[in-house]
């Protein structure tokens, strides 16, 4: 276990950031259950991919920086990578779902452009 030399306020800050971030991710996952249609559900995981991810990575960077005594920004790379890839994933998925729904003539299908 790390953090023996850490001041208590820093530990509380790190924990608060991590728990808030995990809370947003969990809320996003809950949306997969609570929302009714597919197009509503696609909105849910973006909670974890934006604010939840940002808070947890910030918490990790704060903790590592304090432990190692220098600025550790490595985790920001995961954030940059996720920010670029999440739009691609959701865009392709929504496009595929729209195409299937239109092809099958489902009532909830998106209108043609």
């Amino acid at each position: 276990m790390t953090g023996a030399a850490l001041p208590v306020w820093a530990a509380w800050l790190v924990v608060a950031l991590a728990i808030t971030g995990a809370g947003f991710s969990l809320t996003g996952a809950l949306g997969l259950i609570r929302l009714r249609t597919f197009y509503e559900r696609v909105h849910a995981p973006t909670l974890g991919a934006t604010l939840g991810m940002a808070l947890i990575l910030t918490s990790s960077m704060v903790l590592l920086s304090l432990i190692e005594g220098r600025l550790v920004l490595r985790d920001a790379l995961i954030g940059i990578f996720l920010t670029i890839t999440t739009p691609v994933t959701l865009l392709v998925l929504a496009r595929a779902a729209a195409q299937r729904d239109r092809h099958e003539g489902n009532p909830g299908a998106p209108p043609e452009l």
Binding site: T2, G3, V8, L26, L63
Partner: peptide
């Protein structure tokens, strides 16, 4: 409370929440 106890408990809770999110997914 020491810093170690806060970190261990808090991060454990965060991890549990993420695992619950994984289970829902």
């Amino acid at each position: 409370m020491t810093a170690i106890a806060v970190l261990d408990g808090g991060l454990g809770l965060a991890q549990g929440m993420l695992v619950l999110a994984m289970a829902i997914a």
